[in-house]
């Protein structure tokens, strides 16, 4: 598993009521289709915003449906692989 995917999984796992659910979801599988509920998706988006220190654009939000998409978003924001949390609000 790549570092980016691992970081994405850590972020997502922290947003789930049942974190173990993530262990059964592949990187490219649709999160909601795999059992993640919309409230948890909302929290994932919020956590991404905190991590990146800015609001996500509509285009970024609509793509945020898989582990791979979350990893790509975080990688684009922090290509050096840093994971410092930035609180913006």
């Amino acid at each position: 598993m790549s570092t980016a995917a691992g970081e994405a999984r850590d972020l997502i796992r922290g947003c789930l009521d049942l974190p173990a659910l993530l262990d059964r979801i592949g990187d490219e599988e649709d999160l909601v289709g795999s059992g993640v509920n919309s409230g948890e998706i909302v929290r994932i988006a919020l956590r991404c915003e905190h991590r990146m220190g800015r609001l996500l654009t509509d285009a970024e939000l609509t793509e945020l449906s898989t582990v791979r998409a979350v990893a790509a978003l975080l990688s684009a924001a922090d290509p050096a692989g840093h994971t410092e949390t930035k609180v913006v609000r």
Partner: peptide, 19 residues
């Protein structure tokens, strides 16, 4: 709070209006 799930969901969903 600005942090509850219902209000966040609506805020995220309406972000397209800024496009």
């Amino acid at each position: 709070s600005g942090q509850s799930v219902p209000e966040l969901a609506l805020r995220f969903l309406l972000r397209f209006a800024a496009s």
